[in-house]
Amino acid sequence: MSDTPVLRVRDVRKRFGDHVALDGVSLDVHEGEVVTVIGPSGSGKSTLARCVHQLESIDGGAMYLDGELLGYEFHRGHLRPLPDRRVAAQRGRMGMVFQQFNLFAHWSVLRNVIEAQVLVHGRRPEEARREALRLLERVGLADKADAHPRMLSGGQQQRVAIARALATNPRIMLFDEPTSALDPELVDEVLSVVLDLARGGMTMIIVTHEMSFAREVADRCVFMEKGQIVETGTPEEIFDNPASPRLRAFLSRYSGRPAQLSGEHLLEEEITP
């Protein structure tokens, strides 16, 4: 294994109009590492995930996947944006799981998991189908292969979305608040799939509001606020010995909550100042 991180984010800046969403974010993620990103709403966690996946363009800084510059290339000594086809290929090497699942509504579950393998990675349809069924088995939904996404519960849709993202053998998986849109009783089934991936050695960035999960699954935990990474460290450092007052203030709002794999506290958290 080389020293090159799978993902390298260097001083990335992003603004939406007057709002600074990312204010110089740097982050390295190494092979097999699981990084969880926590922070209050509007801290830039989701924007970071979307920028890494090039769903949003960045205004400054640079990002590398396996040492390869993302979204740009050198041409006669100058940087210029890559053509759409090359950007698409780079995206195809990462997996993304969205808060709102975003399964393709006009396709069956199986086709959702098959299509990118065939279209983007040129696999033979029967091979893609076998792989899709294997992954659906892994997330416990092989019996739903022919169902349409609308017929599934939120938790089931999210598990299909994970299988879909895994189907193209991504180098890194990005989770953008994967359980925030779920009913509380459906959160655990999704988290257990993610936990299973982490134990399998998948490199991952997980943006989440699930504090106990963020602690349990992480090799390293990142706290963001106002578009900056305020603190980064092992789960123990972050949750037990927070150095910055901002992190302490953030965590104290979660204190006294039962430490379990459950999303019920989230609903209250939005209201409590």
Binding site: M96, Q100, N102, H106, A116
Partner: peptide, 27 residues
């Protein structure tokens, strides 16, 4: 068509044309 559908298509590595023809237009 929900913007998330285009996001998902791009995220899977579809080119702009593939995501328009395969995902957005059929829906």
């Amino acid at each position: 068509v929900d913007g998330g559908q285009r996001d998902a298509a791009r995220a899977m590595g579809f080119t702009a044309r593939q995501s328009f023809v395969k995902v957005v237009l059929p829906q």
